[in-house]
Simulated assay, not measured.
Amino acid sequence: MSLTTAQSRPVQLPTLFLCLLAAALIWLLNALNKNSYTVNVQYPIEFVYDQKQFVPTSPLPKTVTVSITGNGWKLFRQSWLPFRSSPIRYPIAHPLKTKFINTASLATSLTDHAKDVRVNFVAGDTLELNFDRLAAQEVPVVVDSAGIDLAEQMVVSSLINVSPRTIRFEGPARLLRGVPDTIHVKIPARRLALSYDEELRLPIPRHPLLRASADQVAVSFEVAELLQPLPPPPAPQPEKPAAASKPAKASKSSKTKPDRRK
């Protein structure tokens, strides 16, 4: 009688993978059904203030870190889909006096906003606030006509046109203090012999919070040849000396009459 060895069946990898996936899914579903899970989530926040009067001088946080406790399914939704929830609105009544976010009041607002979980606390990172008053200033633009480099026998024969003639700056009041009262524009061309019509970049301060109505101006003027030299300026006339005052005549009454008595 011959004995035959039973051959081992090969392992089916797709079947093994599906079994492991099903086991992991069942374990995850059971875990999510439990309560009293605690996680930290990034919750969206929206700051409410008078944007026509005030401007933040440092970036406002778009989210805050919140510690929440609740059911696994609810925490899963809050952890993976936080931005599908409407942001919490945080009002700022006095921006110049408010330097930090009040975490206690924010936690209370979040408790009323997210009623399906328990808010433990708001983490204390990126909670600093900086505001300044929003201001505006109009600054005139002037071309440095004395610094125009002309070719020999050439002169500026027309008015110097500048467009725009004023630049409006808008931003935090402390930044506007560094804006000059007048913007002087220099003509970079050398030995000009033809009419000039160019757009020039303005020498203005650059800052992300400082907005300018324009960063360049159009400058144009005519240049012509001087056919005859300009007449020299008239020589200053010497001042006439003041006339000497004549001595006053003696009055007739002051004359001494001869004494006729003998």
Rank of each mutant, 00 (worst) to 15 (best):
N35I: 00
Y196F: 13
V122M: 04
L194T: 08
K252T: 10
D197Y: 02
V155K: 14
V119E: 02
A24D: 08
V179K: 12
S8M: 00
S157I: 07
E170K: 15
R190S: 13
T65E: 12
Y37N: 07
P44T: 07
V223C: 03
V55Y: 10
S58T: 15
K255V: 11
N71V: 02
S213W: 04
L129M: 01
Q12W: 02
A173I: 09
G70S: 12
N30V: 09
S158H: 00
A136N: 13
T182A: 02
A189W: 00
P188W: 04
Y49E: 01
I26Y: 06
H94V: 09
L21T: 13
I160L: 04
Q237F: 12
Q51V: 06
G147P: 08
L16T: 05
I26N: 08
M154F: 11
L3D: 10
K62Q: 14
T15V: 11
R84T: 11
V55T: 15
F121E: 07
P82Y: 13
T103F: 05
R177H: 07
I204Y: 09
K257N: 09
S158E: 00
A242R: 12
L194D: 12
N33D: 07
N120H: 08
I26V: 15
E199F: 02
S79Y: 09
A151Q: 14
F221D: 03
R168V: 09
R191T: 09
D259A: 12
P95M: 01
A104D: 15
D259K: 14
F169D: 03
R177E: 13
P258G: 02
R89F: 00
A6H: 05
P44M: 03
A189R: 11
R84W: 09
H184F: 08
N102K: 12
T126E: 12
G70W: 10
F169I: 01
W27H: 13
N120D: 06
L210Q: 03
F121D: 08
A136M: 11
A248R: 15
T15F: 08
L28C: 05
T15Y: 08
L227Y: 01
A6D: 12
L230I: 12
I88D: 06
S145A: 14
L16N: 02
P236G: 07
P234G: 01
S58A: 15
A235L: 14
P44C: 06
P164N: 00
S8P: 06
S58N: 12
L175T: 13
R260L: 12
T182N: 06
V155N: 08
F100Y: 10
D215W: 06
R165P: 03
P61Q: 07
S245Q: 10
V41A: 14
K255R: 14
I45C: 06
A22L: 13
N130Y: 02
A107L: 04
M1W: 01
P258K: 14
I167H: 09
P188N: 09
L127T: 08
A107F: 03
A224Y: 01
P231E: 05
A248W: 02
K255N: 07
S58I: 15
A212T: 02
G171A: 07
V185W: 04
P56V: 00
